[in-house]
């Protein structure tokens, strides 16, 4: 999708946190990317590496965690992880549109000093 704009938003947020703490550098950024977010983790990493030189996050480690899709089966009343793009409960086969996890797209944590 638009990984460059999102990477810039993450770098801006990380720099803002560093400033709040009076920190000169960002050493690590931890991000969560849902499988349904539309973001390709490799493209996000590429954009972070391309945009970070010259910022507080120059040389930082980018820890990108992929969050798998999790749905809720209305019949079994329990969560399941779909095997593919058809979200069918592995136990009863019922289709679910109730997505509880997988849309994530966030900067979770930064390490600064």
């Amino acid at each position: 999708m638009h990984e460059a704009g999102l990477a810039q938003a993450a770098l801006d947020a990380a720099a803002a946190r560093a400033r709040e703490r009076g920190a000169a550098r960002v050493y690590r950024m931890t991000l969560r990317v849902g499988d349904l977010s539309g973001v390709v983790p490799e493209a996000l990493r590429f954009a972070l590496e391309a945009l970070s030189p010259g910022t507080k996050a120059d040389g930082a480690a980018f820890d990108i965690r992929v969050v798998p899709v999790e749905c809720h089966c209305p019949a079994c009343d329990r969560p399941f992880r779909p095997a593919d793009i058809v979200y069918a409960c592995p136990d009863c086969g019922r289709l679910s549109a109730d997505v509880r996890q997988g849309h994530e797209l966030e900067l979770v944590e930064v390490e600064v000093s």
Binding site: A14, R17, R21, Y27, E106, V110, E111, S113
Partner: peptide
């Protein structure tokens, strides 16, 4: 030598502006 890095929770949605 700088102080050892401190972890700071952020929790910021990257599409927050939209």
């Amino acid at each position: 030598m700088p102080a050892s890095p401190t972890a700071v929770l952020v929790g910021e949605n990257l599409k927050a502006r939209n």
